[in-house]
Computed example of a mutant assay.
Amino acid sequence: MQKQKKVPQRKCIACQERDAKKGLIRIVKTKEGQIFLDPTGKANGRGAYICKDVECLKKAIKSKALNRAFKMEVPSDVYDNLLKELESYED
Rank of each mutant, 00 (worst) to 15 (best):
E85G: 05
L57V: 07
D53H: 05
K59L: 15
K11V: 12
Q4G: 11
F70D: 03
V74R: 02
K21Y: 07
R68E: 11
C15M: 03
K64F: 09
L82E: 07
I27L: 01
I25Q: 08
L57Y: 07
N67K: 00
C15Q: 06
R18Q: 13
I61S: 09
K62H: 14
K5E: 15
V54T: 09
P39V: 02
K11C: 10
Q16G: 03
K62E: 15
A69D: 02
A43I: 05
K11F: 04
F36R: 00
A69S: 06
Q2G: 13
V28T: 08
V28G: 02
A60I: 01
L86R: 00
V78I: 15
K59M: 11
Y79D: 02
I50Q: 03
A65Y: 10
E55L: 07
V54H: 07
G41N: 07
M72S: 11
L24Q: 05
K29W: 08
K62P: 09
A43S: 15
V78D: 13
C56W: 03
R18A: 06
L86H: 01
K71I: 10
D38V: 02
L66F: 03
I35E: 02
S88H: 14
D80P: 01
C56D: 04
D91A: 12
A60H: 03
I50D: 05
